[in-house]
Amino acid sequence: MLLNTENPILITTPITSRQDLYTALAHAAHPCCHTGETQNFVIPRNLDGMADLLREFCIKSIVCSDWRLDEADTKAIQEVLQDVKVRLQR
Results as ranks from 00 to 15, higher is better:
R45I: 11
T23S: 15
I11T: 07
Q89P: 00
A51P: 15
H30P: 01
D83V: 11
D66F: 02
C58L: 09
G49R: 07
T38S: 14
V80W: 08
T38Y: 15
F41W: 01
A51F: 09
L25F: 02
L21R: 09
F41E: 01
N40C: 12
R45M: 08
N7V: 10
A72Y: 11
E37W: 00
F41T: 01
E79N: 12
M50N: 03
P31V: 10
V63T: 08
L88S: 11
E79R: 12
R90K: 14
I15G: 03
Q19C: 03
L54C: 10
R90I: 11
R87Q: 13
L53R: 02
I62H: 07
R68K: 15
G49A: 06
G36T: 03
L25N: 03
Q19F: 14
V80C: 10
D48Y: 03
L3F: 01
E71A: 15
A51S: 15
S61P: 00
S17P: 12
R87Y: 12
E37R: 01
P8R: 09
P14A: 02
Q78I: 05
T13R: 13
A24P: 06
L21Q: 09
D20Q: 05
Q39G: 03
F57A: 01
I43M: 04
P8M: 12
C33P: 00
L3W: 01
D66C: 11
P44Q: 00
E56K: 04
I43H: 04
D83R: 15
I77E: 06
I9L: 08
E79T: 10
E71Y: 08
V80P: 05
S61W: 11
N40R: 13
L3R: 03
N4P: 10
D73E: 15
D20K: 03
L53C: 06
N7M: 13
I77P: 07
R18T: 09
Q82W: 09
I9K: 01
I62E: 06
N7S: 12
N40M: 12
Q19H: 15
L25P: 05
V80E: 09
N7D: 15
E56A: 09
Q19T: 13
D48A: 05
F57H: 10
T5M: 11
H34F: 05
C32H: 07
A51C: 13
N40I: 01
F57D: 02
L53K: 02
G36E: 00
T74Q: 06
R45S: 13
K85M: 05
A72W: 05
H34R: 14
G49F: 05
G36L: 02
P44S: 00
N4R: 08
T74C: 04
T35V: 02
I62P: 06
I11R: 07
